[in-house]
Simulated scan of single mutants.
Amino acid sequence: MRIIGGSFRGRALAFVGKGDAGAHLRPTTDRVRETLFNVLMGGRYGDPITDMRCLDLFAGTGALGLEALSRGASHTTFVETGRKGQSLICENIALCDCKTTTKLVARDATRLPANPDAPYDLIFLDPPYAKSMGEAALKSALAGEWIAKEALILWEESAKIAPPPECELLETRKFGGTNISFLTT
C-alpha cells in the first residue's frame, strides 16, 4: 500500500499483507483509492478535500484519511477500535510525518460520544462488510454532531446500504465486490 497522490505521493504505508481477518482489516486497494480520489478531485462534488476536516470511521490502516491529507485536507481524525489498526495508523502517521494534522480516537465507531471538536466535512465510512455497522456508525456520528451540514460521506460496503433519513444518496459506484456510495447531509 502506498499514498497515490498529493504531497505524500509514493510513500509506502505500513505492511498489512492481504489484510488481517482477525482484526477485520481489509485495506482499500491502491486502485480503488486512486479511482475514488479521481472522482473526488474531478469536480463533480466541487472541491471536497482542500482545507476540509476529514473523519475516517473504521479507519483500519488510515490510508483513506492519509490520502485526503496528502491531497490538501486540513485535518483527519481516525476512529478505530482494534489495537492492530490503531498500531498501523500510528505507524502510518509517522511515515507521513503528519502528527500535527491528525488525531486517533480509539473507540467503537458505532458508539461515538458527543464530538468535542468542530464537525467534519468529508467522511470515510468503511465498516466490516455485511454487518450493518455502517448504519449504526453513521447514526452515532450524526447524533454526536461529528458530521457537518452538507458534508460528503463515502461509504464502502459489499451490499446495498440503508442511509438514515438525514442523508441523501447521490450515487453508488461499483469496484469489483466493493460498492462506494456517495451521500450528503
Rank of each mutant, 00 (worst) to 15 (best):
N115P: 10
F37W: 04
F37K: 09
F182T: 12
A14S: 12
T185Y: 13
A118R: 05
F58S: 09
E168D: 08
C167K: 06
I3G: 13
C167E: 07
T101R: 10
E91A: 15
P119K: 00
G5I: 05
D30E: 07
I4N: 04
L13M: 04
P27Q: 15
A162V: 08
L112H: 06
K160S: 15
N115G: 02
E135F: 07
E171M: 11
W146H: 08
R31A: 15
T28L: 06
L40P: 07
T172N: 08
L183M: 02
S158R: 14
I93L: 15
D126E: 02
E135C: 10
G46K: 06
L152P: 10
S158H: 12
G46M: 10
R44W: 13
T172G: 14
R2T: 00
A130H: 13
C98A: 01
D56T: 02
G43F: 03
E166D: 03
N38P: 01
G72I: 02
S74Q: 10
G46F: 02
R26M: 12
L104Y: 10
I93F: 11
T178F: 05
L55A: 11
E67F: 04
A159T: 12
D121Y: 03
E80P: 02
T81P: 00
M52W: 01
L13W: 02
I4E: 03
K149D: 15
S181T: 11
I89P: 00
T184D: 10
R2A: 03
D51K: 01
I147N: 05
E91W: 04
M41A: 15
E157W: 01
V79D: 14
G176M: 02
T178Q: 07
S87G: 07
C54E: 03
L125V: 07
L25V: 08
R83S: 14
R33D: 03
G19L: 01
D30V: 01
I93C: 09
F37E: 08
L122H: 00
I180V: 14
A136Q: 15
E80R: 05
R33P: 13
A106D: 07
K139R: 12
D117P: 01
T28M: 14
A118I: 01
R71C: 11
S181I: 04
R11A: 14
L36P: 06
D97Q: 12
A137V: 03
D20C: 02
D121V: 00
L104H: 08
G72A: 04
F182W: 13
G72S: 09
G42N: 15
F37V: 06
E34I: 06
T184Y: 13
